[in-house]
């Protein structure tokens, strides 16, 4: 079943066309990756799906709700993790998770417990966020994003700033989230990560989707060893 349906999406910032008529779908239980260089329009697309930015033209439908008309409904079952997101520095990790959990109608204690489990910060969960390393902050934020068991998780560079071990752990958590039935829309510069994580990918450059398919199909089509090679060929 289609969870995200993006049709002919266009986004202008003044005279600059950041997203140029893109269309894609994400199914339930699927991990869909948007990959592309900086400034390609990935973050803008994710922000639109997350209800943060308004649409210039086209449509975005999430689980039957139009982003333009029902953003408040959509916010109840999505979760967005921005690339360079932060947390409130004066709160402890636990207090931050509790603050977020309080916005949801579900059992907030259960949500917090799951967030603590995903963040896996041990005793440091009761330390102030200000004292966390970059990797610890990212783990806390991934915990925050996935603790609510969203129907759609929108993850912008989810493993950014994490070391190899932590990044692998987070990738497993994302896989499990999709396995549990959630749709995952993510963006990444890390082509290998995308190849490992995503069921389908879209290559985006200068605001346009220039190729789309499963990693295997793309590798076959371009006779490439990895997605990085596919990307270079497509962009070239």
């Amino acid at each position: 079943m289609v969870a995200v349906d993006v049709k002919n999406l266009v986004k202008h910032f003044g005279s600059t066309e950041a997203v140029k008529d893109i269309s894609f779908t994400v199914n339930k239980g699927e991990i869909f990756g948007l990959i592309g260089p900086n400034g390609a329009g990935k973050t803008t697309a994710l922000r639109i799906v997350s209800t943060l930015l308004q649409i210039t033209s086209g449509s975005v439908n999430i689980l039957g709700f139009d982003v333009k008309k029902k953003p408040e409904e959509i916010r109840k079952f999505i979760s967005y993790l921005p690339e360079d997101a932060g947390a409130y520095k004066n709160l402890t990790g636990r207090a931050y998770l509790r603050f977020i959990a309080n916005f949801f109608e579900k059992q907030s204690q259960e949500i917090v417990s799951l967030g603590i489990e995903i963040a896996d910060l041990g005793d440091r969960i009761d330390d102030k966020v200000d004292t966390y390393s970059k990797g610890m902050k990212r783990r806390l934020l991934v915990g925050r994003a996935l603790m609510t068991k969203p129907k759609l998780a929108i993850l912008d560079e989810p493993t950014s700033g994490l070391d190899v071990v932590n990044a692998q752990e987070i990738r497993k958590i994302i896989k499990n989230t999709a396995r549990d039935g959630a749709a995952v829309l993510l963006s990444s510069h890390n082509m290998l990560e995308v190849e490992y994580l995503c069921d389908r990918i879209a290559l985006i450059a200068e605001g346009k989707i220039i190729e789309e398919g499963t990693p295997k199909a793309l590798l076959d089509k371009y006779d490439a060893n990895n997605i990085e090679e596919v990307f270079v060929q497509v962009v070239a």
Partner: peptide
Amino acid sequence: NKTLETLLTLPVK
């Protein structure tokens, strides 16, 4: 601190 984007995607008016 990049907390605004998160806040704006939460189910809060």
